[in-house]
Write a protein that binds this DNA or RNA. Structure first.
Length: 300
DNA sequence: CTCCAGGGCAAAT
DNA sequence: ATTTGCCATGGA
């Protein structure tokens, strides 16, 4: 279903474009996409070239078109795959909704968040950087830091008086100096972690392909955590958002704990046993239920 | 003023 | 092996 200028992706069951873009646009200032009531626009790199695309919903399809960049079939196909992956459109949601149905605390989510997909971050480098940025600070401040990083080191496209930023490449970020990041209000350590991570990616010791090729979840987790600045929370966040590991539970996540508490699943403090048994009941859908719990922290 | 946000590291028990 | 202090900033 691809023409050079227009890409049509059939909308699968239990998919809501509105729920997805609402989540992307909730209460925070994300510099990596622009959303209006009708469309979402985003700039990415495809085969080394910058591309700006737009997605709208139209008669049972997501309709994407390239606003800036090559419109050849190869680019269009790449973009189609990118969008399906971004919004996790291939997933059969029924098993998850069946689990929710039998959970008295969370079954309201079937109706309230119907069609919300776990929105991913395809680029592992970006996913890791973002989770390092977000460590231990509130999300508003984290998005502010991300914007400074992206506006300083990322490329951008301009279209209709709007600027569309692309997350900085490891090559660029590896040349940054810790003092530069420090002056942008990153902590000294976070600056060092980000630059170290960029160097690991350009040296080839850490790439998405390498991590994906490892035989099991634990070894992927361990390989990520071998890098300075990546602990359990960060590794699992990245595995959840970039590699779509269902077992990628961001253990200790403050938002997750708040949501579990709010839904009466745990009491006041960290009740590891209750948390463990809760996730046991969501086997293979652990990261999804985390995502839905995060969703529950924002009010429409 | 203190506490704490989508943690992790290194030093001190 | 487990706990503690620290980090940056801004809002509650």
């Amino acid at each position: 279903m691809i023409t050079p200028s227009k890409i049509l992706i059939p909308i699968p069951p239990f998919f809501s474009f509105q729920e997805c873009i609402w989540f992307l646009n909730r209460n925070y200032d994300d510099c990596l996409h622009v959303i209006s009531s009708k469309w979402i626009r985003k700039a990415i790199v495809i085969n080394g070239k910058e591309v700006l695309f737009e997605i709208v919903e139209n008669q049972g399809f997501l309709e994407a078109r390239i606003l800036i960049g090559e419109t050849d079939p190869v680019t269009s196909e790449y973009l189609a795959v990118y969008i399906v992956e971004w919004f996790d459109m291939q997933r059969d949601m029924r098993p998850f909704y069946d689990l929710l149905k039998s959970d008295p605390n969370l079954n309201y989510m079937i109706d309230s968040y119907k069609g919300l997909r776990l929105i991913g971050i395809a680029d592992l480098f970006e996913a890791l950087c973002w989770s390092i940025i977000g460590q231990q600070i509130n999300l508003t401040f984290a998005y502010k830091l991300k914007r400074r990083l992206v506006e300083t080191y990322g490329k951008h496209l301009e279209f209709e008086d709007e600027v569309y930023y692309i997350f900085p490449s490891p090559e660029i970020l590896a040349t940054a100096r810790p003092e530069e990041l420090r002056s942008m209000q990153f902590s000294q350590k976070k600056g060092e972690y980000l630059i170290g991570l960029a160097k690991a990616f350009i040296s080839g010791t850490l790439t998405k392909e390498i991590i994906q090729a490892l035989p099991d979840f634990e070894s992927r987790q361990k390989a990520l955590m071998a890098n300075k600045g990546i602990g359990l929370w960060t590794a699992n966040y990245a595995l959840m958002k970039s590699l779509r590991e269902s077992a990628g539970i961001p253990h200790g996540d403050v938002g997750l704990l708040n949501a579990l508490s709010k839904h009466g699943i745990i009491g006041d403090r960290r009740e590891a046993h209750k948390i463990e048994s809760f996730f046991t009941s969501y086997k293979y859908w652990e990261s999804y239920v985390v995502f839905y719990l995060w969703r529950s922290l924002s009010v429409k």
